[in-house]
Amino acid sequence: MNTEAQSISRALNIGPSILGTYRTEIAIAIAIVVLMLGVGAFIPAALSAGNFANILQAAAPLVIMSLGVLLVVLTGGIDLSVGSVFSLTGMVTALIMSWGWGSVPSAAAGLGVGLIFGSINGLLVTAVGLAPFVVTLITYAVAGSLAFIVTNGRSMGIGAPDFWLLNSGQLIPGIANYVLFCVAFAALLELALRKMTFGRWFYAVGSSANAAHLLGVPVKRTRFSAYVFSSLMASFAGLLTVSYILNAESTAGASLMLQAIAAVVIGGASLFGGTGSAIGAVLGALMITVIQNGVNLIGINSFWQGSVTGIAILIAVLIDRFSHK
């Protein structure tokens, strides 16, 4: 009895080891390094500083979007509308700039798209009680078509001369903004999820909404905020992309929705809710980008990209599954 109590207290007084908590994340990080070295073995240029910068730049919008999707997935939901919101944000921002408005109000209007669609998603899921898949399928379709309607399908250049600063400026000297945003958002979200009570609520809701509700967790508010956050992040990712390529297109986000969900799943989140981490989502997004980059560099027909990504998801999920056995 006594020894049992002692062994329990010993186990309880040490915190969780980094290795234990971030097992999945470490495995993915290793996989990414292996992938990069593998590509580097064929194409030495893959390991150049220039290519690292390429990968980071290409990954940034996906990283930010994945963080948003992660929150929804944690609650056991899904957000299919992020790609469309991404596109629509870019179109609206560019359109408003074309009316002669400055960067800041145009970008704010772009974020407004995210706010509106996030709120619609959130309300339909919580207040009306529709299934997240159905709700976000609707907003995916609506936002996707609005992205064509606002400019009649034309792509739009960016009017404001200082808008590029959002992506490539340096708020902190020496670090490009897109890197800063990724790191800051990921760190803040990870901290909130681990160290704040409301962060734990996302997991609680995803684990058992019934049980959470009876415990006094504000289930509806938690769900609602997840959808708003997800759309806002998609919007922000849209702004970043437009700020980089200085051009807005109606189809810009078309492929991103599935990639964001894939990133979250690779990062160890369960689509049934209740598990996942911000760091995992970031690594998942990086992994997808590294694969795309490698496929390009090696010169494989880009039609293969989807297959390679699919296999990567399978491997990641299998690793996750067996590392928890």
């Binding site: 009570t197 684990s207 049980a211 415990l215 006094g216 369960s270």
Partner: peptide, 24 residues
């Protein structure tokens, strides 16, 4: 039970809510 949440979250959820704890 919140089946996927660590025991510490399961046990302390009620206290966090009742005492309005913000931080873990």
């Amino acid at each position: 039970v919140l089946a996927q949440l660590p025991i510490i979250d399961n046990v302390l959820a009620s206290r966090r809510i009742r005492e309005k704890r913000r931080y873990i």
